[in-house]
């Protein structure tokens, strides 16, 4: 039963994800948007403009994910350090 469900999920995801088109589109793509509205950001490094302005929510939460990773490493490894004593 589990395998049937897994197969259905995989087929559904394949049906959803395979037709997606990642080529550069002529009118509506994000590539064109970034290039056209470069002056709106005001930084000469376009990568930083995308990362820290249009995608600031991603970058800021990514920093928090790094914090959570350090917290996890601290919890797991410090526990072992104290067990040795």
């Amino acid at each position: 039963m589990k395998r049937v469900i897994a197969l259905i999920i995989v087929l559904f995801l394949a049906y959803m994800l395979l037709p997606l088109e990642y080529s550069r589109s002529e009118d509506m793509g994000s590539y064109e948007h970034y290039i056209d509205n470069w002056e709106e950001i005001g930084t000469s490094n376009l990568v930083m403009g995308i990362l820290a302005d249009w995608r600031l929510y991603d970058s800021a939460i990514e920093a928090m994910i790094f914090f959570t990773g350090i917290l996890g490493a601290y919890l797991i490894l410090e526990e072992k350090n104290h067990e040795d004593e």
Binding site: I41, G42, T43, S44, M48, G49, A52, D53, L56, S59
Partner: peptide
């Protein structure tokens, strides 16, 4: 956002870079 290409430009982007 200041002048294009100067260190004091881009609004909060330099501050964000320094903090990160």
């Amino acid at each position: 956002r200041g002048t294009f290409g100067l260190p004091f430009s881009g609004g909060i982007i330099p501050l964000f870079n320094i903090f990160v």
